[in-house]
Each structure stands twice: as structure tokens, then as C-alpha cells.
Design a protein around this nucleic acid. Structure first.
Lengths: 212, 212
DNA sequence: TATATTTGTTACTTTGTCGTATAATATCGG
DNA sequence: CCGATATTATACGACAAAGTAACAAATATA
């Protein structure tokens, strides 16, 4: 279970290993995750063997296991990559001085773009049951954080008057659901870029939220 | 591949077999489908063995195969049961003389209730790749019919003035997505009945659609 | 009650894929 | 240039679950 070399790119001076080694290793690991994410999206998690992933990278299966402990770890990393991408906008939101509705607009645009991205499928459609209880709990916590953020912004908006009166819980479910669902249709109907998709949904829900 | 007896309940007079036999057989078949649908929802399609389904019904695996050709057929029947439930409201819609927005309200309420029902999970979260190309195509056709209906009603509403100006395609995606997503959270958070969930969403999107 | 048909079980084969033991090759620091 | 370590391949073990063959129990009809 112990890594042969610390994979942190920052640990260059205090490590006996060349940083370039650790760096390319990290890069290759990420390539494995990404190739897996694409295969999962195309064929589903259970219909994708690690041999499929390997051959997509022109290597053999044990090579995959050199970079990753097991299939579950790959799935977890896919979840994390996607969810982190969504959460990356939280900082901007905290800093911003706009109304809650405008913050929601930003969040929706960003969220939608992330779902249309490479890890959208895994983040949304992969099943908790394919992760161990521990990993599943971590994923649930991340997801819940995002959902709570939406619900919180709706409540905030009702208070500051930028959002019309509505049921915050159901409205948040509706928004999150509509966004998550993008992963079901986006790659079949990719007439828009991920950013454009996010923008389109931001517009739709701006209508929903605007007070009347 | 040929069934030993025609399972249609209508074939009572011209068949040498007692109709009660065919009837109970049909009932048992449906019990298999339903038990499987519940197991799929709880553990996922691939994490549910037919032995699990069998033991939930207090029988053994080959008994399942007596009522059903294979696992794929079960999944297809689950899809069909759910989608038919949604489509069952189309007749009322055609007969109704209300505005398009009011029709949408009815459709959304009904759709939402169906998704929160027994077959909601299979209908929405099961993957096309787990069906043969032929069956997958049939499912896609049914789904598309429903989506087109929503989009059509939005366009109709924009024309008759009951729906405010919006992008019909994206708005339809948003509505369908929000409704489909119910299957992800409903059984964990079942504080409302399926009908109440449908009603709540009808309300949320009435806000979205109302002209301003 | 006797017989044919339906319904169900026990025990098996087959298949696919995860994950690993082992060995061979490439690459880096000294 | 050499030894150690990183990287990759070949071949295999283990196991779970789909699907089947052959046989046993139940039941309707004559």
C-alpha cells in the first residue's frame, strides 16, 4: 500500500528521487483515469474491463495496476475529478458581492459546463454501490455540499429579494436534476460547447428564479 | 424460443389451455419483473444476480428462467412498464381543450409521479448498453416520443401565448432532466408521495413557463 | 384414479474479468 | 559503464454470475 515514491510534485529537494520521475508517473496516472472515464461513459462502468482501458492506452492490464490499486479507485478518482471541478467555483462565489440570483447564475453556468465535460458521466451516472462504503460516503459528502450550496443560495435570494418566492428544496432539486441530466444527452447531441450548455441553462433558470 | 402456451389472457375460447393457468402465469411473470425492478433500484443492475431476485421471491434461479428468457428481457420489461405509465396520460392530453401550459402542468405532474414509482429507477438509470441494439432502439424510440411531446407542448404554448418566450429545446431538456432526476433522490427522501412530488414539480415549472 | 402438462429444483457448464506472481526490459543516478 | 529502481509484459488463479440439462413435484383434465 505504500507508494514507492512520494508523488507530490512539490517534493523535489528533500526526495532522493528525481522529480521528473514522479511527475511523469502522475501524468500517466491521470491518463489512466481519463481513459477510463471515457470508456465508462461510452460503455458503462460494468461493461468496461480494465483490459479495454489498457488497450486504449496501448498497454496491458498489469500496467494499469501499476498506477492504480483497483477498479474502484479509478471510479473514485473520476468522481473526485468531476466534483472538484464544480467546487472550484465556490471561491469566486464567496468573494463576489453580487445578489444571490446572480451567484446562482454563475454557479449554474459553471456546473453545467462541468457536467458536459469529461468526468460528467462518472460524477452523475456511476453508482454509489460500486464504491466501498467508505468511498461512497466521501462521494456523498461532496455531492451534498454542492446541493446544499444551491439550496442555500436560493434561500439567500428569497431574503435579499433577488429570487421570487418558491420552495427552496424542490427548486434546488429541479435545478440540480436538470444540470445533472446533461450527462445523459450531451455527448449524443454536442451541437453546443460545454460552456454554451452551461450558459443556456443559466438562462432557463434565471427565468424560473426571477421575482414577478 | 417458442412459448409452451400463449400467455395472452384473451385467448380463452380457442385455446385448449385453461385461461386461469395463463393468467396466473402472467401474474407470476409480473411479480418477477417487479421484484427485479426493486432489486435493481437498491443494488444496481449489475450488482443484482438473478439468484438475488429468485430468493426475494422464495424460489430458485431456474424458476426465473421459466418466466423470462434472460436478464436482458427483465430489464426491457422494466423500461417498458415505466415508459408506458408515462405515456398513459397522452390520451387525456389529446382530448383536453386547455392551454398548452395547462397541458404541460398535467404532463409534468403525471411524469413526476411515474418516476417516483416502482419502475422509475430502471426507466431512467438503467443503461442502454445493457440492452441488445434492437431492444435499445425500442427504448430510445419510446423515450424520444415523450421528450418530443414536452418540446412540442412548449412550442405550442409559445404560439398560443400561455408560455413565455424561451428556448424550447433547452427548456424541454431542463424539465425532463429535473423530472428524471427524481429517481436519484426519491427513495432516500420519501417525505412526499409520488403524486405530491409530481405536483411540486408542476408548480416549479409553472413559474418557469408563465409569460411575464 | 390415471395421465399428460405445467411448474419447480438440484447440480452443472461456461464465460468473463478482476487481480497477481513472476519475469523481462528500460531508465536513472553515481 | 553499473547497479538499483521504475516500468511493462506473459501467464495464471480465483471467483461470481449467466444460463442449461436433466429430473422431480404438483395439478388439471379425462
Amino acid at each position: 500500500m505504500k507508494k514507492p515514491a512520494p508523488a507530490r510534485p512539490g517534493a523535489s529537494t528533500d526526495s532522493p528521487w528525481s522529480p521528473s520521475r514522479a511527475k511523469t508517473r502522475q501524468l500517466k496516472r491521470e491518463a489512466v483515469i481519463l481513459a477510463a472515464a471515457r470508456a465508462f461513459r461510452e460503455h458503462g462502468y460494468h461493461n468496461t474491463s480494465l483490459e479495454d482501458v489498457a488497450s486504449a492506452l496501448n498497454v496491458t492490464k498489469p500496467t494499469i495496476y501499476y498506477y492504480v490499486a483497483n477498479k474502484e479507485e479509478i471510479l473514485f478518482e473520476c468522481f473526485r475529478a468531476g466534483l472538484d471541478q464544480i467546487k472550484s467555483v465556490f471561491g469566486d462565489l464567496d468573494a463576489s458581492k453580487h445578489t444571490a440570483r446572480e451567484k446562482l447564475r454563475v454557479l449554474i453556468r459553471h456546473y453545467g459546463a462541468a457536467i458536459a465535460g469529461e468526468f460528467g458521466w462518472c460524477m452523475v451516472r456511476a453508482e454509489d454501490q460500486d464504491l466501498s462504503p467508505a468511498m461512497s460516503a466521501r462521494v456523498k459528502a461532496l455531492k451534498s455540499e454542492i446541493d446544499q450550496r444551491i439550496r442555500g443560495l436560493i434561500k439567500e435570494g428569497i431574503k435579499d429579494g433577488s429570487v421570487g418566492n418558491c420552495d427552496p428544496k424542490m427548486t434546488a432539486f429541479a435545478i440540480a436534476g436538470a444540470l445533472n441530466w446533461i450527462s445523459h444527452w450531451y455527448h449524443k447531441d454536442a451541437s453546443l460547447s460545454p460552456a454554451e450548455v452551461g450558459e443556456a441553462f443559466a438562462l432557463v433558470f434565471d427565468h424560473t428564479l426571477k421575482p414577478r
